[in-house]
Design a protein around this nucleic acid. Sequence first.
DNA 1: ACCTTTCCATTGTGATCACATTATTCGCGC
DNA 2: GCGCGAATAATGTGATCACAATGGAAAGGT
Lengths: 260, 260
Amino acid sequence: MRKDRADERAAALRLMHRRSKAAEAKPARTRAGATPRLRTPEARSEIAVTTHESVYRGLRNRILFGGFLPGSAVTLRGLAEDMGVSPMPIREAVRRLIAERALKMQDNRRVLVPPMTQETFEQIVFARKTLEPELAVRAMDRIGPAEIRRIVAHDKAVDRAMAMSDVHGYMESNFRFHFAIYEHAGADTLLALVESIWLQFGPFMRMAYNRWGTSDLEDQHQAAIAALQRRDRKALRAAIAADVSQGMSFIGETVLRRSS
Amino acid sequence: MRKDRADERAAALRLMHRRSKAAEAKPARTRAGATPRLRTPEARSEIAVTTHESVYRGLRNRILFGGFLPGSAVTLRGLAEDMGVSPMPIREAVRRLIAERALKMQDNRRVLVPPMTQETFEQIVFARKTLEPELAVRAMDRIGPAEIRRIVAHDKAVDRAMAMSDVHGYMESNFRFHFAIYEHAGADTLLALVESIWLQFGPFMRMAYNRWGTSDLEDQHQAAIAALQRRDRKALRAAIAADVSQGMSFIGETVLRRSS
DNA sequence: ACCTTTCCATTGTGATCACATTATTCGCGC
DNA sequence: GCGCGAATAATGTGATCACAATGGAAAGGT
C-alpha cells in the first residue's frame, strides 16, 4: 500500500539520474552544480531554460489538465524521482505553485493538491465571471484573422477531444482556446490572476469530467468566435460569461455534494 | 558606489550568523540543518515558524509598506546578509514573492522590484475596483461591534500617521484598515488575489506619497465605517470603490507621466 | 578620448548532506 | 485479535559547496 507508487512509476521514468552514492568514483561526471541546460533528450535547442522552469511547467500542466486528483499528496523526493531531477528544482517549483495556490501546504508541512470546497468553488466562479469576459473584450481589438484562425483550431481540437471522450485532451484544448483569446488583451496582471484561478480548479474539473464524460457539454465557444469576427463587444462578453457559467455549474453540480 | 550598501547595512544587522569558514573548529555549533525555530531575539514564543516564513513576512511587509523602490535590484546573498540568514530561505521567500508578482525576475535572472507602467497600473485599478467592494460586502454580515472597533482603530492610526506625515505608518495602517474588513469575508481565494495586487503597487504607492506627502488625502474611510454600522451594502460598496478610485488616481496622477 | 577586449567579482542554480519533525510500521502485552 | 508503545522510515528545511553565466571594471589599441 506504499510501495506501489514507487514501483510502478520508477519503471516509467527517464532514469538518467543516479540516486545511490554507490557510483562514486565515476570520473567524467557532469559534476553537479549549475544548470546543465535542459535534460530532456529531445534537445529543445535554442532557448535555455532552468531545470526549475521545466519542472514547473510540467507540474503546472499536469495540474491544469487534470493529472492530479484533488486531495492527493505530493512529496518533494517523490516528484524528484518521477521527473528524474534532484529535489532542489522541485522545491522551487512546488514553492511557486503553492504561492499560486495550485498546491497547498498544510500545517504538517505536507504538500497536497488542495481539495475543493463549495465556498472556494463559488469564489472561483465569481472571479472567472468577473475577469474573463473583461480579458476577452480587451483582447478583441488586437485579434485579427490570423489569431482567430488559431482560436478556431483550438475549438476544433476541443470538439475532437469531446467526440473521443478524451478528458485530458479536452481540458488542454479548452484551456488553450480560452487563453489564446485572453493573452492578446495585453493585460498581464489580470491574466496572472486568471491563470492562478484556473490552476485551482483544474484537478477538480477533471473529477467532474471523469465522472460524466465530456460529451453532453454544449459548445459555447461558437458564439464567442462569432462575436470576435463581428467585433461585437457585448456579445463576446456575454458568450464568455455564458461559457463560464455553463461549464462551472456543470462541474459544480456534478461533483459538489449538497452541504447546506 | 558598490560598497556602500554592504557597509552601512552590515552594521545594523543581527550578526548571529557566521559567514566565513574561518571559525571551523567551533565545537558546540548549532550545526546547520533543520529549523532552528525562530532566530529573532524577541522570541515570539509559541508558534513555530520556519525561517523561510519569517523572511517572507519581512520582505512582504517591506514591499507592502514601501520599503523598496520600484526598479531597485535585489540579490539573494545581499538579502541574506541583511536579514542575517543563509541564502537558502531567502531563495524560497523570493521565489514565492516572484510568483505573487511582488518581485520580478528578468531574463538576466536578476531579481528586482518591478517598476510600474501605465498599463499595469490601470489593470490594478480595475482589479481593485472589481474585487475589493465585493470583499467588503461579503464581510459585512460577519462584522460585529468588536470587529468595527478594531477597524476604527486602524482608521485612527491612519489619521495619526497622516498628521505626522509618516508615510510608512500611513501605508501600514491603511493596509490594515482595508484587510481588517476584507479578511472577514470568508473568501480566501478572492483575498489572495487582492493581496497579490496590493503587493504589486506597494512600492509605487510609496513613491507617490514620498513626493507629495499624505496630508492632502481626504479620508474616505469614514463613509465605509458608517456603512458598516448601518449595514448598508450599497453604501459600503460605493465607499470602498470611492476610496480605491480616489487613492489610486491620486497615486497615478502624481507619479505616472503622460505617455500616450 | 573612445571603443574594444580581457579579466575578475557577483549572481542565480543545482547537488548533497545533516537535522528535527512527523508519519508509519512493527512488536509486545493482554 | 486488538490497542498501545517503541522503533523505523519518510518528509520538508537549512547550510554549504561548485558551477556557468553575466556584469562591470581595468587594460589595451587606435
